[in-house]
Amino acid sequence: MNDNTKEYEKLKSELKKSLATRNKLEDEFERLEQEIYEKETEYFSGNNATSNTGIAGNRFSYGGNIIKGFDGFNKSHHHSAGHDSHNRGFNNDDRIFSLSSAIF
């Protein structure tokens, strides 16, 4: 009977440890999801701001990114002004990294 009780206690203790490990992993998962979301927000707010400082200051005058594509880097300032999709601000549909999680 003592052996059974010891075995039972041992199994219970192992289960407790596994549950604690799982809790840590769940916390880590949530932290990563949050970090992805925040980094996207930071990136969008840095790029959505309009600027009228001219070629050198306005990132939207030329360029591109992983969300819209990098074709903008090929274009000159004249071609990109006003009609380029890269000049359109970001919205929540552009959160391609957060949206890769079905839970998001």
């Binding site: 992983i66 819209k68 890769s100």
Partner: peptide
């Protein structure tokens, strides 16, 4: 030039 399309595809598949 193809990186954006590859990313969109891969992330879509992950979802």
């Amino acid at each position: 030039s193809n990186l954006q399309a590859e990313f969109t595809h891969i992330l879509g598949e992950i979802r």
